[in-house]
Design a protein around this nucleic acid. Structure first.
Lengths: 154, 154
DNA sequence: ACAATATAAAACAATCTTGTCCGAATATCT
DNA sequence: AGATATTCGGACAAGATTGTTTTATATTGT
């Protein structure tokens, strides 16, 4: 029923990046403060996503992270395959190592149609869709309120 | 996409108990060995289920654990409410503490119908159904093979 | 009294999350 | 060109959570 913290932060961060202008790299520090998540942990997650070719990273001044592909190419599935591991869609509800159509746990065939729904959702939901939803202001990305589109400069 | 180990062991154990004659208490030790899970850990889990009124426990000789209600009354939902906590059906995919129809994360309304399918499955799946499935021999409850209905006595 | 069993608590281990530190890379400024 | 400021990269460790094992205690039937 739940994703790991790592996956949650990864999705939040990528949605936020998709709301930002694609040209300029986004700073880990900025993402962390806008989302209210620990910066060192987020950095590690973003590095992993860069290694998985979802992001490009630039060091030095004017550095930061950019989405490698446009937000319309990246789906939740792409993200979770990296953060949850490549086998996360095949996991057995009861935790059996071997649970296939041949050697099935008693929940296997009941679970399959539900799993299918989940996978459809993950495949169909692109960063672009989510970013646009957030940009309407009707949805929030973090518990910390008002940080996202009400930032004031001194 | 995944339940905690505790939940997995709890469900496995209860299904196994539902395959056994209801009259005699079942020993933690026996369940553990048949399922191939650590006995002390399973004991702790079963005690929790007893506290949650899903099981009755008997101490001393001829002791053990019994299902309190018939297997047809107990659903996966009953079990998981105890092992995952009472709020596990309300958790937000992105981990937001406050994510309701009013203050929604961008995944909220996409996730609701899928969550509904999951809840339906959990409410509809009784221990009795699962136990009967296992008794046909077509489904397995544990990775350790052949322990369930091929136990030989010396 | 004894043996078998559940219960409780605590100790231990593994994993996940978070924080700190320093080095490497890169653009900007002088 | 060189100095400087900024940013990612990676190693390491502290803390938190979860899973596992051990130990001791209480209860019950024979």
């Amino acid at each position: 029923m739940i994703l790991s913290r790592t996956s949650q932060y990864a999705v939040q961060a990528l949605i936020y990046m998709a709301t930002q202008p694609a040209a300029a790299p986004v700073l880990n520090k900025d993402i962390a403060s806008k989302l209210g998540v620990p910066a060192p942990y987020l950095a590690k997650i973003l590095q992993g996503l860069a290694k998985g070719n979802l992001l490009v990273s630039f060091r030095g001044r004017l550095g930061g992270f950019c989405l490698r592909e446009g937000g319309n190419k990246i789906t939740l599935m792409h993200i979770l395959l990296l953060t949850e591991g490549p086998a996360f869609t095949e996991s057995c509800l009861l935790g059996l190592k071997k649970c296939s159509d041949e050697t099935a746990c008693p929940l296997h065939f009941r679970w399959i149609p539900v799993k299918k729904k989940i996978i459809e959702l993950l495949l169909d939901t692109s960063l672009e869709k989510l970013a646009k939803a957030v940009e309407t202001g009707k949805y929030r990305l973090a518990d910390v309120p008002g940080m996202l589109f009400e930032q004031l400069e001194p």
